[in-house]
Write a protein that binds this DNA or RNA. Structure first.
Lengths: 259, 259
DNA sequence: CCTCATTTTTAGATCAGTCTAATAAATTTC
DNA sequence: GAAATTTATTAGACTGATCTAAAAATGAGG
């Protein structure tokens, strides 16, 4: 127990999963409450209470009863390490083994706990140090630095032209559907209309002639960047000529070299 | 749409390890006794007794108290499946990720339990359906068929010329040493002399001018095939036999070509 | 055939991770 | 602000895999 601050004091894959989930929740700017963590991991609340106490004791997170958890620096470091592994593995499965983007998550979920650091550094080099995974998520670098993303949730976007930045959903069915209708990272789309009262979005992906109707809930997992040059709406434009919405800050698109 | 024929009832990675060890012991024509299994797995004997009873109940092996275990057809099928995974993974790590042959075992040991069938079939294709792993061990095919090997333990070999068929030892230090002195699968060697009373072997690997002295115990993990055309002993023959130098390095090995 | 050393099994315990059911705290509603 | 609802914790138990220590079976030597 004594030797602390060691290089990655090995933890179980269960612990890695808990840390990963807390990080994910924090990234969504939510409170990592017992029940929220339990929902993500699909375990009983009581199990989470126990585990959070244990992780607090291990110095991986702060835990206030009836409130929830916050990662410590050490816990965050470990969580980001897993995140990096996960995303690199996804990219590897996609690029080297030909997995579809809807297949990579499940496999990476198991491999992230099993592969060595050597494995990770080898695939990193083999892939030429990728900065994004197949869903458009950015890959933390080897030191744990994470690029800040500056994207917009499609559910909150105004009508206009966008490019798809990332899709934060790992349900294979859903991803297969998006793929089918031509919604993939780095593709462009035109948001034509948002139906009122939590209604669906009317989208025109660049690869498609037909508009696609997407439920608002589903649109929450799609993140986009406004296109710089606002082209006119490609055909079948809806009645409203107000495709000039909240254009204002269509400036630089953060730091990633992606078109 | 690959509907798997053999419904592989999922077992824990611990169970997979037990089956693998029993298979290995049976392959060595030994009795899979409690203590032998325990030694291989580095667990207490009592733990093995428990587990063997459990595996018997699951129909994976026969177990006679105070005697030991024998794999059933079902147990053998599962064990061979793991063996295939292990060796394919080793080959993948070696060929695709550039691992040294002394590094592959440890990593494969963890991955064999974690990767999916899809992963295995993808690397199998990527490697063009290899039949051997980096140690020269044959890889069972997808249906579980295993090529019968017809090789000879170096410890039992008479002086003469041989090609290295396989090395059945996964100690990284030992493998690194063999590598250094030029003893790798598909390389040739001349067994010059066997010292009496469990003494060491005097070997001349094809890549080396200096003879190598190898302990008898170490030689037990090296398996060879006699060379067809018996060339004369290359130089430095000990007690005055012939010593025509410069091994004519012609003559082909048994099936594999590497290098 | 009996004794002794070795091997194996039994008995009882531990640890990590999980569960359900009961209780308690926090929050929302009236 | 008290009751109702939601959320979280405690208590107790289970499973899988392991351990140690003690008891029992096996098999070898006299």
């Amino acid at each position: 127990m004594a030797a602390e601050s060691q290089r990655t004091a090995t933890v179980s894959s269960t612990v890695e999963d808990y840390l990963k989930v807390v990080l994910k929740i924090e990234d969504m700017k939510q409170r990592a409450s017992t029940s929220r963590v339990a929902r993500h991991l699909e375990v009983a609340d009581a199990t989470v209470t126990d585990m959070l106490r244990k992780l607090k004791k291990a110095g991986l997170l702060e835990y206030k009863p009836y409130y929830g958890a916050t990662l410590t620096r050490k816990g965050r470091r470990m969580a980001v390490r897993i995140l990096r592994r996960h995303r690199l593995l996804e990219m590897f499965l996609h690029q080297v083994l030909g997995y579809g983007w809807e297949q990579v998550h499940q496999e990476a979920e198991r491999l992230e706990h099993a592969v060595s650091d050597l494995f990770i550094s080898r695939i990193d080099a083999l892939l030429d140090f990728p900065v994004q995974d197949p869903h458009g998520e950015t890959i933390p670098d080897a030191r744990g630095f994470r690029q800040v993303e500056d994207d917009l949730c499609l559910a909150e976007a105004e009508p206009g032209g966008y490019s798809v930045r990332k899709v934060t959903n790992s349900d294979p069915e859903f991803l297969a559907y998006l793929d089918k209708v031509g919604l993939r990272p780095a593709t462009r789309l035109w948001l034509q209309e948002k139906a009122p009262f939590q209604g669906p979005l009317k989208l025109l992906p660049e690869s498609s002639r037909e508009p696609v109707y997407l439920g608002l809930e589903a649109s929450r997992s799609i993140f986009v960047l406004p296109l710089k040059d606002r082209q006119p709406a490609p055909e079948s434009a809806p009645d409203g000529s107000e495709s000039r919405g909240a254009s204002g800050r269509a400036g630089r698109g953060a730091g990633n070299e992606e078109e």
